[in-house]
Design a binder for these strands. Structure first.
Length: 447
RNA sequence: CGGGGUAUAGCGCAGCCUGGUAGCGCAUCUGCUUUGGGAGCAGAGGGUCGCAAGUUCGAAUCUUGCUGCCCCGACCA
């Protein structure tokens, strides 16, 4: 992609409303634009990142056996009256009326709807287990939206719903999602710690929040420092193997970790002092097991092997991709701008032509861009008629992992400069070496 | 929802106290010179001063009401 043909409205100055670094950088790098309080338009670069994140989530959900569908954003109030949550949800729910004066709502979550879908088709225990998920926009009318997409009113959510015949089978479904979440966040370069959590309006007895540590996090969290060195489960993990999953979940829940609402200072004080971590955290995922909370009132039942109808055991599993964009920036940035992990960068490679119009730089830049694109990588080629300094600043701000700087000085020696955004390391290489170096590194990420 | 703040060009701000019809920096456009870490000079365009009512010969400025947005607290993917 040629930058001169792209839409990348970067801001040199920071809009005053942005308090935290991720919000500032998202506005400056042209990722989002606020349209109302807590409501954002996703600009091209931001959408690319969002799509990268949802792609990783999809891969890991599918790997864990969840099946994708797509439910609507608008739901009927009647559905929510069945579960009793229409009244219970309060003012967080955006309620609207259609032209026939029918009461509708913009969905804050989808337990009712998925239960309705499930009960209309599934009759037998033989069709279980089942886990359906979708990635859809949600609306929660927060009293005070803030921090950009970190706490917005409209936000993208991946929500999965599991159905099982027994609580034990339900626990296994829960464990599958637990393990999938560990892998998902690790692939985005994040260390997410599962913490005992309150289940809030979703309800249920068993619940974990996945928290990443960050100074600007909204919640106060407490955990054992060994979590920071745990390795995520491998790609070839067998999701059908109950024992294997259980041992992973046991390991990740064996040490103390809790949000402030669930904090037990007594238990925390038993940890050796040097191993105690007291920090702030960002919630990037939340999983629940709530048994028959919805299946009972909404009559989502299946016939068991004895022919008797029993309500299904359910769980739900959320990840906020839009919030993750901000969370990743909080975890990975410097003075100059964003530092995207290779796995979710909007473009993997940025090429800066330091002297547009110079036949040698033009030629080399175009050849490089072409080669990377042919090899299946995404390239942003800065072919604007700008000064070198402005190009360096732009590339650093938008945080592409690999930069290739092509100027007449270097080319006189037959060299271009390859810069790794993450470390700031620079190397002078021939264009051929540069291509090989970057392709090899990126292939490793993909593998 | 309580408390506080703010609204002037795309962005950041001054002007308001003490009324006389709007200015600065960045960005944008044109030209020339520049070209390896956000260039210089010259010129140009762009604003119903959040909205409404009021006071006044005259309102960005004073008064009242409304709205948007931001911050602090209680709630949350």
């Amino acid at each position: 992609m040629r930058l001169s043909q792209y839409f990348l409205p970067i801001l040199r100055e920071t809009p005053k409303e942005a308090e935290i670094v991720s919000h500032r950088l998202m506005l400056r790098a042209g990722l989002i634009r606020q349209e109302s309080a807590g409501i954002y338009a996703w600009l091209p670069l931001g959408l690319r990142v969002l799509n990268k994140i949802t792609a990783v989530i999809r891969e890991e959900q599918n790997r864990a056996g969840a099946i994708e569908c797509l439910m609507p954003t608008i739901q009927s109030a009647d559905l929510w009256r069945e579960s009793g949550r229409y009244e219970a949800y309060g003012k967080e729910m955006l309620r609207i009326c259609d032209r026939h004066e029918r009461e509708m709502l913009y969905g804050p979550t989808n337990e009712e709807m998925i239960t309705e879908i499930f009960r209309s088709y599934v009759r037998s225990y033989k069709d279980l287990p089942l886990n359906l998920y979708h990635i859809q926009w949600k609306f929660r009318d927060e009293v005070r939206p803030r921090f950009g997409v970190m706490r917005s009113r409209e936000f993208l959510m991946k929500d999965a719903y599991s159905f099982d015949i027994t609580p034990e089978a339900g626990q296994h479904s829960y464990n599958k999602m637990f393990v999938a979440y560990l892998r998902t966040f690790a692939r985005m370069g994040l260390t997410a710690i599962p913490m005992a959590a309150e289940s809030g309006p979703i309800g249920g007895s068993l619940s974990h929040e996945f928290i990443i540590l960050a100074d600007t996090g909204e919640s106060e969290v407490f955990c054992h420092k060994d979590f920071l060195t745990f390795k995520a489960p491998p790609e070839n993990i067998k999701f059908a193997d109950e024992q294997a999953l259980k041992s992973i979940v046991d390991k990740w829940t064996s040490l103390y970790a809790a949000t402030s609402e669930m904090h037990d200072s007594q238990a925390f004080s038993l940890i050796p002092e040097e191993a105690r971590v007291s920090a702030r955290g960002i919630e990037v995922g939340h999983i629940f097991f709530f048994g028959t909370k919805y299946s009972e009132p909404m009559k989502a039942v299946v016939s068991g092997s004895d022919g008797k109808e029993i309500p299904v055991q359910m769980g739900s599993y959320g990840i906020g991709p839009s919030r993750l964009v901000a969370a990743i920036i909080e975890a990975s940035h410097d003075e100059a701008g964003i530092i995207w992990p290779d796995s979710i960068a909007p473009f993997q490679i940025g090429i800066a032509n330091l002297k547009v119009g110079d036949s040698s730089t033009d030629k080399v830049c175009e050849a490089l861009a072409q080669q990377f694109e042919n090899a299946g990588f995404e390239v942003l080629y800065d072919d604007r008629d700008e000064r070198p300094g402005a190009k360096f600043a732009t590339l650093d701000l938008i945080g592409l992992p690999w930069q290739i700087l092509v100027g007449p000085k270097g080319l006189a020696e037959g060299r271009v400069e390859v810069k790794r955004r993450q470390t700031g390391e620079r190397e002078l290489l021939t264009p051929e070496e540069a291509t090989q170096r970057i392709v090899a590194a990126l292939r490793q990420v993909a593998a």
